[in-house]
Write a protein that binds this DNA or RNA. Structure first.
Length: 542
RNA sequence: GCCCACGUAGCUCAGCAGGAUAGAGCAACAGUUUCCUAAACUGUAGGUCACAGGUUCGAAUCCUGUCGUGGGUACCA
């Protein structure tokens, strides 16, 4: 529809010169008595032409030449909108197209040949994934799928750090629990990880080594066993919600491969570093940041900024066209440093897109649950999945804008899981499947010969919603906003349920029934394709 | 103090690439099953789009300020 309008406006440019210089904006009016598409072009021209907008609108309409079998009506409304109404005959052609393309419908080749790296989760192996990581995981995975839907070849990447202070404390925590097994009361330090899983890991060490590590509190075994066990659990949890990574990137490799050292030298060569109080500072103030910051501590250890920058240089060296990072709002202040550092080294930071999502506030029994991995007062992602199911968890985390603070009432989620919107979507799909089973028994089949019979307001709304699918996928992908597609699918399901209530198939005249079957087949395909982007099941029965 | 995000119906949130009368779900109330799945549909009620200015033909949407909420502001990651 939109393409056709652009075409007829283009041909009219010869008649009206002012159409050549102005950009044509087409919008979908909220109220359908205002047509299928509206243009504000006459209003934007008022100033330039110093004429009444309605008058200009009339002049434009007179200059437009269009096919009467496609456009049924063009009218001027309100202050000077030009409203276009399409014929069912033209609009309904999409039904056949969708049925022809099946699961390819909605996919785009716009970014074919381009590669993207999406980094997400990236939790260090110090404990099980929590509900908080869940939002990160699902946003990252869904954005990756959306990018694939518009043509990108995507690598999902998990970045982790198995060195450093956090991990030392983890090792000590296990060692302390291990000593408890041996009956030795080593005081369990307050900074140790409190979770029960530490005891499980200590038990594994004990089973393997008995009491041989009794006097080796600092032995690497504790840390290594912990890392291995915890990572296994993390991968299991991820698999449980349908997420698999192409690669796990170990921060430690940046040290052993020399990336860190090379990076420091690069900064030095550019004259961007200086020493002060025994530490190495980077001149962030010359890179558009407020103050200079330490990149190597006086102890000789780099701060987190250095490996983060070095890590991103590897992404550039791996030649990705697009680099996406998914961070919680607690990292909001660190990524500008990374970008500034990369820019100083002449990397094209335009390729980097950072998605910052706001934290999920977990409510239980009317109270806010404060989460801390170390203190072990958290709800794990596994527990949540077991409680409400994978699909509800996934949908819950992408149905809202990443920028919005989200409240998650655990009690409500458990109690009302039946009323979750995800069931509404699935039910629409299952309902169609059910109709199709019945229709088959009645020996009725889909036909595209009389699609123009689908002309009631309800049917037209439903068909027009199908038209929007491709654009919604594209917009959700290029703006990294999965929730837009979720809103779209809910609207589609609502329109279908309304159609179901108003328009029967069995009992209708055969030609109409066949056209309606074609329509619901198309709706089913779009629902299924949309649900697939979210990695949700599209059930045939419920 | 400074930086980032948010503030829309009782609750959870869409709408924010400026457009016509601000939407959905839940909760409340009233209806709809001899008829393809009632996990559905229809209707009623519910709003100073935090507040105050500005930009313009037009602002929930863009800009400035104020208030409120969350996060950040380390030689922790």
């Amino acid at each position: 529809m939109k393409t056709y309008l652009r075409e007829i406006f283009k041909s009219a440019q010869n008649k009206l010169e002012y159409l050549q210089v102005i950009e044509l904006q087409l919008s979908k009016p909220q109220d359908d008595t205002h047509g299928d598409y509206a243009s504000n072009i006459a209003m934007t021209l008022t100033k330039k032409l110093k004429r009444n907008p309605r008058e200009i609108a009339q002049e434009i309409i007179d200059a437009l030449e269009f096919d009467k079998t496609k456009i049924s009506k063009v009218e001027i409304a309100g202050p000077g909108f030009i409203n276009f109404f399409f014929t069912p005959n033209f609009v309904n052609q999409i039904v056949e197209l969708i049925n022809k393309e099946q699961d390819k419908f909605g996919l785009s080749k716009k970014f074919e040949g381009k590669t993207a790296n999406v980094e997400f989760v990236s939790a260090n192996p110090t404990g099980p994934l929590t509900v908080g990581h869940g939002r990160n995981a699902v946003i990252g995975d869904t954005v990756a799928t959306l990018l694939e839907a518009v043509g990108y070849k995507v690598d999902r990447e998990y970045y982790f750090n198995n060195a450093g202070r956090q991990m030392r404390v983890l090792g000590h925590s296990v060692a302390a629990r291990y000593l408890e097994f041996l009956g030795e009361e080593k005081k369990f330090d307050e900074e140790f990880y409190q979770g029960e899983y530490i005891k499980d890991i200590a038990k594994i060490v004990y089973d393997k080594y008995d009491n041989k590590l009794k006097d080796k509190f600092d032995d690497e075994i504790f840390k290594l066993t912990a890392e291995e066990e915890i990572f296994n659990d993390i991968k299991k949890s991820l698999l449980k919600i349908g997420i698999e990574f192409e690669s796990f990137f170990n921060e430690n490799d940046l040290y052993t491969e020399g990336n860190i050292q090379n990076l420091i030298e690069s900064f030095e060569e550019k004259g961007l570093t200086y020493k002060k109080e025994g530490a190495v500072w980077l001149k962030f103030s010359e890179l558009g940041q407020e103050v200079d910051k330490v990149i190597v501590k006086s102890s000789g250890e780099p701060t987190y900024r250095l490996p983060d920058i070095a890590y991103h240089t590897t992404k550039f060296e791996r030649n990705y066209d697009l680099i996406v990072d998914v961070f919680g709002s607690d990292h909001g202040a660190t990524y500008p440093d990374v970008l500034a550092g990369l820019k100083a080294l002449d990397y094209d930071t335009e390729k980097i897109k950072v998605i910052i999502y706001q934290f999920v506030t977990i409510m239980s029994k009317g109270k806010v649950v404060k989460m801390s991995t170390r203190k072990a007062n958290y709800i794990t992602l596994d527990e949540l999945i077991d409680d409400v199911g994978k699909d509800v968890v996934r949908y819950f985390f992408i149905m809202r804008n990443s920028n919005s603070h989200m409240n998650f009432d655990l009690d409500v989620a458990k109690k009302q899981s039946d009323e979750n919107p995800v069931f509404y979507l699935k039910y629409a799909h299952a309902r169609i499947a059910s109709i199709l089973r019945t229709v088959e028994e009645e020996k009725l089949k889909a036909s595209y010969d009389n699609l123009d019979l689908l002309d009631t307001p309800t049917e037209q709304k439903l068909v027009k919603q199908l038209h929007k699918y491709e654009e919604e996928v594209m917009l959700s992908a290029i703006h990294y906003e999965p929730h837009k597609l979720a809103t779209y699918l809910e609207n589609l399901a609502a329109l279908f349920h309304k159609f179901y209530a108003e328009c029967r198939i069995l009992g209708s005249e055969t030609k109409l029934a066949e056209a309606r079957i074609a329509l619901i087949l198309a709706v089913k395909i779009v629902l299924k394709n949309g649900l697939k982007i979210f990695s949700l099941e599209a059930p045939e029965k419920m």
